[in-house]
């Protein structure tokens, strides 16, 4: 199981939850599982997110591995100057 930490503003679409447990071995699988569990997350994820897996912020790689028990944070997609 992967515990995914959501940003607190998302609790409006997850029935109040800011930590969601899902199955998934990759970033993409975790994101898909999140949407399956809480369809209200779809527009947020489609708008672009970064996913921090054990402290590493991963952007734009759905195939990045998520080890079992990893700490996962959903973040707004970063931009740089």
């Amino acid at each position: 199981m992967i515990e995914v930490n959501l940003w607190s503003g998302l609790r409006h679409v997850t029935g109040g939850a800011t930590v969601v447990e899902v199955e998934g071995a990759t970033v993409g699988a975790v994101l898909d599982a999140l949407v399956a569990a809480h369809p209200g997350l779809a527009p947020f994820i489609e708008a672009g997110v970064s996913v921090a897996v054990d402290g590493e912020i991963i952007t734009g790689d759905r195939f990045a591995e998520v080890p079992d028990g990893a700490e996962v944070f959903l973040m707004q997609r970063l931009k740089g100057g």
């Binding site: 940003w7 607190s8 503003g9 409006h12 527009p43 947020f44 708008a47 707004q76």
Partner: peptide
């Protein structure tokens, strides 16, 4: 967009809330 809860002023186009 979808991030903005109902009732916000019309020029607010994105809303962010995070913490612990």
């Amino acid at each position: 967009d979808h991030t903005v809860p109902d009732g916000m002023p019309p020029n607010v186009v994105k809303y962010f809330e995070f913490g612990r």
